[in-house]
Amino acid sequence: MTAALFAGAARRVLCARPPAALAFALTLRATLEELFWRGLVLAGFSLALGAVGALALSSSAFGCMHRRRRLHLVTGLAFGGLYLVTGKLLAPIVAHAAYNVLVCSTLPVAELRQVRKRFRSSVALDDVDLEVRRGEVLALVGPNGAGKSTAVSLLLGLRRPDAGTAKLYGLDPVRPEARRAVGVVPQEIDLPPALRVREIVDLVRAHHADPEPRPVLLERFGLERLAGRQGGGLSLGERRRVALALAFAGRPELIFLDEPSAGLDLESRRTLWRAVRTHADRGGATLLTTHHLDEVRALADAVVVLAGGRVVARGTVDEIRGSRQLEDAYLELVRR
């Protein structure tokens, strides 16, 4: 029981890692589980109970030790059957590892399920479902007060939903381990006024297990000249560039960009777009809230339109737009 609890917790924790580490961890876990359930339990009871009896026993126990029992009963039967048919333990190990990697890589990295959130008498979010998947740039658009920033706050564990669930990598976002592979550019950017940019970067890097080297970050976001300047002396655009660098400090898999281009000049905006595209090309996921529809057109794979705290449309840019201009479609949706 303890082993199962530990394994369950370890899997959920490891799901927050980037794909390569995740794949390795899931393979290792599949190997250990197969060695125990098929190599030890199934093979061990086969002599006493016969192959079918041992398969039933080991699969039932395998199912009981996991949260989703029926699913694990079925997978236990499949992996056990594979072992009995092939007679080799390697077969269920490979199948189990492939299954784990496949399932984990198709699960949403961030999700809201039937979420409601009120602030006193005003409804910020009402029955909202939202999913961000690996390699996807999801744009969350809507007028002021539509609930975009509230949705981001819930996904980052800064707020709690009144109803429904918010999850990051399958975990409660309040737990720090859920945010291990996450980078954030907040809407309101305020850097410690007395710290120099390089010191701020180092402080944020220290929160991550495998941070990007400081020179790489500074160079990538054109911050070399600002490295010795104090946070309090930077312009809004410079602060946003620093915030963008901070978001990438921990080599994130998922980045939250909450209206990131507000106040940015053209060059900084291009740097931002380039960073998002590169991130997506590497398989990273992005949740972007913005008022700039040209940004949506340029970056987003999927769009969710919020109005009055409800999702009023979702789809690709082309699906949202239909035969109209994106701006016209957007205005029509939010004015309904």
């Binding site: 564990g157 945010r179 291990r180 996450v182 907040p186 991550h208």
Partner: peptide, 14 residues
């Protein structure tokens, strides 16, 4: 009262 404090809470540390 500073947004920076709020930002620090998004980092993976208790």
């Amino acid at each position: 009262s500073r947004p920076w404090e709020r930002y620090l809470r998004t980092l993976p540390a208790p």
